[in-house]
Every structure is written in C-alpha cells, then in structure tokens.
Nucleic acid binder design. Structure first.
Lengths: 193, 193
DNA sequence: TTCCTAACTAACTCGTTGGTTGCTTGCGAT
DNA sequence: ATCGCAAGCAACCAACGAGTTAGTTAGGAA
C-alpha cells in the first residue's frame, strides 16, 4: 500500500490542498507547497485534478459533503441542530475557512450545494408550514438565521471576538439559547422602531 | 485641481484599491490594475502607500472608520442599531467584502479597531449592567449576535441565500424582529437540549 | 527668467508560479 | 522474461507581477 498507491496519493494531495487553501485561499495558495506537503510530485496534482481551480473546487465539494454527513439535519429540533453545526465548525475551522474563501473567490453555488440546501429547507417547511406567512420567517430565512448564529463567534471581527467569550461551551449555550427563544417567542407586531 | 493634484491622486488610488481589493482580495489584487483604474502611474502607488500590503491596510482602516462614522452606536436601542448597520452593509457591499478578506488574509486587529469595539462594548455595559451575569450574554457577546444577525443574509452560502428573501426591507425587518425578541424575552433555564 | 522641488512617467528587473515535457520505475498479466 | 501501462519524477519554461530606476514635466518662489 505504501508505494505506487494512486488512491493514497490522491488523498494526500487532497488533504494537503485543503490545508493550503484554507490558510491561503485560492489566489494565495501555491501548488508547489501543496506538492511538498502532500509528499507528491507536482505533476501528479495536474494529472489527478486538472489544475489549481479544479483542485480547489474538488476540495470545496469534499468539505461540503463532509459537513453534510457529519451534521444531520433535524428540522424538528433546530436548537440541537445549531449546536451540532457549531460543534462541527469548532472542530473543523479549515472547513469554515474554505467556505469563506469560496464565497469570496468563486461565487455561485454548485449543484450538490443547491440540492442539499433545498432538501433542508423542504424538510423544514414540512415541519413548520406556518412559517411561510407574510412578515414571518420563511424556512430558508430560518436557516439563514441558524447558520448565522452558529458561526457568529467564528465570523466576528477579531477585535470583538477578543472581548467576547472564548469558551466554546458557553458560546454554544448562547447560540442554543438564542435559537430557543427565537423559535418559541415569535413577535406579533411588525418590528417596532 | 485637474493636473498635479497630489491629494486627488491619492484619493483616486485609494478608491481604485478599495474596488480592486474588494473583488479580488489581497493576494488576488493586481497593483497594475489598481494603477489603471485610478488613472495613476504605478510608481505613485508605491510613493504614496509604500507597498501592496500597506495599501491594503490603509484601505481597511479607511473602510472601518467610514463604517464607524456612518453607523452611530445606540446602546439603548440595539434593534435600530442593527437595522442601521444592516442598511450600511447593503449599501456598501465592498466594505463588507474588504473586512472578510481582511479576516482571512490579515488576521489580528488594529489599534483603531480594538478601540472602537471597546468603546461600544463599554457603552453597552453601562446601559445593561445585568448582562454580565453568568450564563447570560456579556455585552461583547451581545455585539457578536447583533453583528452576526445584521450580516446574516450577506454571509449566507449562495445556495441558501437564493432560497431566502431577497428583499432587503424584509431582511431588515426579520433582523430587527429577531433582536427585539432576543433582548426582551430572555430564557431562564439553561439551553435545554 | 531661472531654479528648485514635487508630481508624474516609461521602461526595466528579477524572483515567482502555474503549468508542461520527456523520461524512469515498478507492477501485473501473458 | 518481457511487455504494456499506470505511477511517479526532475527539469524546464513562459508569463506574470511586485517593486525599482532614471528620467521628464509642471508650477511656484526668488
């Protein structure tokens, strides 16, 4: 398995690419560095993944699938879903960064991504059909809030994050609490100024 | 004012740099492109701003100051603060992008940034001294939530954003409503699973 | 008018980087 | 054993891009 194992080499390259792209982004990443980290010849990167852009796309797709598999969606319990998503982001900061780079450097959504979100939103709509009313949260808007809160501390400006809680346990507790409140105490009047 | 106006040239370069960095980031930006856009000679960029990195830092600092001036902080009315912040982000997508790039490519906070956030958090602590209790939101944590919600739609994954409301008015209403609920209905028990 | 300085410019340098080429090496089938 | 082919490699290259240099032009002061 050690020598001449194409599959293992592919994986080593992909892992190295994930690390490189996560820290430097698409434009900042260096193919040579990926080759060194992966202990693979540079040419193999091109042989297996085409070019830098395609390699990046492959990394993104993998990260997405990985996250989807690791964080099961529970439309009837958004509190624990947010908590699980939060835990995932804490444990895989590289994946979060990859998605940020991707949003900035490669706008647009892949088919897989679209499909996974559609699925989630549909599941949510089934459980909470009343969301759809005017002025209320649509299922997709609910997801937006959930995702935003789960990544709130991770995405906060450094200067602010330094002032806030550093304890992940407490962060998760605050996120879960917020979502609990939001899903149970809905305001009736329009957002008074 | 047209010819040989150093101040105007400096500003043109800065504007061009903002646009270039906002779309391509630090690593992806091209100094030559900035020079062309600014209708200035490349050397002037180096004469006025040192090098690419310093130019980027200057742009970031300017954007930060601009946002701070445009969005007055109202610690006693977080709902309207969030709404105003949201409006600013909608009207200045470049500034939001610049700050994202900055978080990814130039970690760490500048002195100005630290100072502005300290100020806000202190103001908030004064108005809401009870926030500090254990398990509750500290002022900084409140700010984290407010910022996260104000930028929730802007930062959502493309595939999800496509499914959610596109109407900024409604987005703002949902943001304001969420913050209203969060600041008025605090949960008592610890985030039940 | 003449000088001096600041604003501005064109053309170059040179290290870097994505991508390629031609070759060698090991492994499994015949 | 040997043939065929996929896996792997070192060296190369053209293009690019940050930063520099040596010079020209405008405009105000003496």
């Amino acid at each position: 398995m050690a020598p001449r194992d194409a599959e293992a080499t592919r994986r080593r390259i992909l892992d190295a690419a994930l690390a490189e792209f996560a820290t430097h982004g698409l434009a900042g990443a260096r193919v040579d560095r990926i080759a060194v980290t992966a202990k693979a010849n540079k040419q193999l990167i091109y042989a297996y993944y085409g070019n830098k852009d395609q390699l990046f796309d492959t990394v993104v797709e993998h990260a997405f699938q990985h996250a989807h598999d690791a964080v099961p969606f529970t439309p009837d319990d958004l509190v624990s879903y947010a908590a699980t998503l939060f835990d995932y982001l804490v444990e895989h900061p590289d994946h979060l960064r990859i998605h940020e780079w991707r949003r900035l450097e490669r706008p647009g959504a892949t088919e897989l991504e679209r499909q996974l979100f559609n699925e989630k939103v549909d599941d949510l709509a089934e459980v909470q059909p009343n969301y759809g009313k005017k002025g209320r949260f649509s299922p997709a808007d609910v997801m937006v809030i959930v995702v935003a809160l789960a990544s709130a501390w991770a995405l906060a400006p450094a200067a602010l994050r330094d002032l806030a809680t550093h304890d992940p346990k407490q962060q998760r507790s605050l996120i879960a609490g917020s979502i609990h409140v939001l899903t149970h105490y809905r305001q009736d009047s329009d957002t008074a100024r």
